[in-house]
Design a protein around this nucleic acid. Structure first.
Lengths: 231, 231
DNA sequence: GTACTGCCTTGAACACGTTCAAAAAGGAGC
DNA sequence: GCTCCTTTTTGAACGTGTTCAAGGCAGTAC
């Protein structure tokens, strides 16, 4: 229940990293279910118990995946966002980039989200333990918004990155279910919903809509803030 | 992978029902994880193997829960919806009623949604196997819409029930995470989001919003229809 | 050197979901 | 009654995640 080694990293790190790398490789190769802890241990040349010394459970190995994807995504987004100023185009690029990066882990992604949906799991994107990774992910969307030339309800702007992150969560959920070749359907979802969001954001300036938006943002702030919700 | 006894019900039904009842009782008493198949079998006075003769897996026992809740909810909604014509009030009543009915299974609900989020699982609310139960659930929202005196974009009306069902899925997801006493936070979420939806539906008649709504409904129809999406 | 202390490593053992070959219990036809 | 076939029932055995008592293996103090 404890031991979230994010920065202190006391325990010998070489072995830890070796085990994690081995696990992620096997997950990608065979999928999550078909990768046994015994196999991970054997391939990493350690004992089963030793793997459990570094990772509290098989699920905890998955968190490495979450971090890795986030890192790669942030890197990739820096390049992708460089020349583009249009909000919709920026959002689209960021989402499609994520899909590309995560593609090798597609089958495995199902298991990831199975855990993520379990509130008891430390892997839930809303859990305190996922806080740092979540902040990074939301940061990408802050970048998308801040670097874009787009007019919108000023009340919306500070919270839009978080809302976009929630939207991405939805896209990922769809992606996880997606069995179409090369996940074409998920890409279609992005292509069709990004313009909708783009237009909705622009429309947020309409006077009639403002009170609605203000209240909606209020609900998100009061009840959906990860740090205080709902646990 | 087969054997979804929904209507044919060849196998002796008494034993099957006994096992299911026992399981649901134990789930409610001890939670899902702490209820072993051995315990279910013992309490139901059958052998472990026999339980597996009637239910392909422990997860399949959970589907019984899904059906039971749906049934109770539909029944309860008939009464609740009788006198009320206001859309917001109807929606609110239906959602709050669900929370009351599901309350005894709150801890267990976590496990339910863990399964539900797994696309490979037959328990996913979007899966073909959950089709009948889903239709019933959406039917409740159709009833909410049809019996309400509310003006809205006519393009929206046919799809609104399904959208509301998706919204309820979100509420349930929140509820599953909710650790506040008596799930007060989830009830607060309902109290605050229902008026928002009520206003949003009313605003759907605005000319400027119509194209946006039309396209959004189109996306839902093309890409979120359970029967063809995304699998 | 020896002893102590704290980190690391081990693999056997445990718990629980699941499978399976075999046996029991019905039932149909005679 | 007996035979043959299907449905149901059994419990031992298997696979896998996880735990744990025991044992190395530093490094430090003396």
């Amino acid at each position: 229940m404890t031991d979230q080694e994010t920065s202190p990293a006391k325990k010998s790190d070489a072995t830890r990293a070796l085990i994690l790398d081995t696990a992620l490789r096997l997950f990608a190769e065979r999928g999550y279910e078909r990768t046994t802890m015994r196999a991970v241990a054997t391939e990493a040349n350690v004992s089963v118990g030793n793997a459990y010394y570094y990772f509290d459970s098989k699920e905890h190995l998955v968190q490495g995946f979450y971090y890795r994807i986030s890192e790669l995504h942030v890197q990739a987004c820096d390049k992708v966002l460089a020349g583009e100023r249009d909000f919709g185009a920026r959002l689209r690029a960021v989402l499609l980039r994520w899909l590309e990066i995560a593609q090798p882990y597609h089958e495995f992604g199902a298991q990831f989200f199975r855990n993520a949906a379990d509130p008891a799991s430390p892997l839930s994107p809303l859990s305190a333990e996922s806080g740092p990774a979540r902040e990074i992910a939301i940061g990408v969307f802050r970048e998308v918004v801040d670097g874009a030339s787009v007019k919108m309800d000023p009340q919306l702007r500070p919270d839009l990155p978080e809302l976009l992150w929630l939207y991405q969560l939805g896209v990922v959920l769809y992606w996880v279910h997606d069995r179409s070749p090369d996940c074409a359907r998920t890409r279609a979802l992005v292509e069709r919903t990004v313009p909708l969001i783009d237009r909705a954001v622009a429309l947020s300036r309409l006077r009639v809509l403002r009170p609605l938006i203000r209240d909606a943002v209020g609900v998100v702030n009061d009840l959906l803030r990860p740090d205080q919700s709902p646990a």
